[in-house]
């Protein structure tokens, strides 16, 4: 018997007490939690939460202006030209090695969804986001969030996301609390997260 068969047989015999006719759907899952909420202004909330994580937040500053201040930036496919005027741009074509990405000043991306309540930005590798390494290795991440991409709650975000795409949820710069519980920002991911809400 293969281990697959062994494990499945063990599971079935362990569950001998479950009525044979019971279907998974027959096990009730109460979903009385909130899908959305009313509350403070969505954009204000997102900004507060991001600042709480020690991200830098700009409201309605032209993206190109912010980008020009950051040196040589990786720019993924699908980035709008208006974000790039006068910016020192590096393209991932042909794909850069991790070591090459490490030598860049930063990366400029869009996002798929942002969650106001938790201060979370989700990337899905689509338009203006690129493969996952692009937003991981460079030390500075300038991320553009359009107002129509902001939702309030986690359930609302999941509704908009496609599980078949590789997703990265980002809530502030990387951090550790492993040394006597002192929070230190910036371990392995980008040490600075700069968010432009437009």
């Amino acid at each position: 018997m293969s281990s697959r068969e062994t494990i499945l047989a063990r599971v079935r015999s362990a569950l001998a007490d479950i009525p044979f006719a019971e279907t998974p759907d027959a096990v009730p899952v109460p979903r009385d939690y909130a899908r959305t909420r009313t509350g403070p202004d969505l954009i204000e909330l997102l900004r507060d939460r991001l600042v709480d994580y020690r991200a830098t937040v700009h409201l309605d500053t032209p993206v190109a202006e912010l980008a020009r201040a950051r040196g040589r930036l990786m720019v993924p496919p699908g980035t709008p030209d208006e974000w790039l005027s006068g910016v020192d741009v590096v393209r991932d074509d042909p794909p850069l090695s991790p070591a090459e990405l490490d030598r860049l000043d930063g990366v400029l991306t869009g996002c798929a969804v942002a969650i106001a309540e938790t201060g979370t930005i989700v990337l899905d590798g689509g338009e203006a986001q690129g493969r996952r390494a692009l937003t991981l290795v460079p030390d500075h991440h300038l991320c553009v969030v359009r107002r129509d991409q902001v939702v309030r709650t986690v359930p609302e975000a999941l509704e908009r996301l496609d599980p078949t795409r590789p997703l990265t949820w980002i809530s502030g710069p990387s951090a550790t609390s492993d040394i006597e519980l002192n929070r230190v920002e910036g371990v392995h991911g980008p040490r600075t997260l700069e968010v432009a809400i437009i």
Partner: peptide
């Protein structure tokens, strides 16, 4: 995240399906 580190959300979450990228 709330139960674990006491944060609204942990800094990074990765989700992938099969042979991603």
């Amino acid at each position: 995240p709330r139960s674990s580190t006491g944060e609204r959300m942990n800094p990074y979450t990765s989700m992938w399906t099969g042979a991603a990228e």
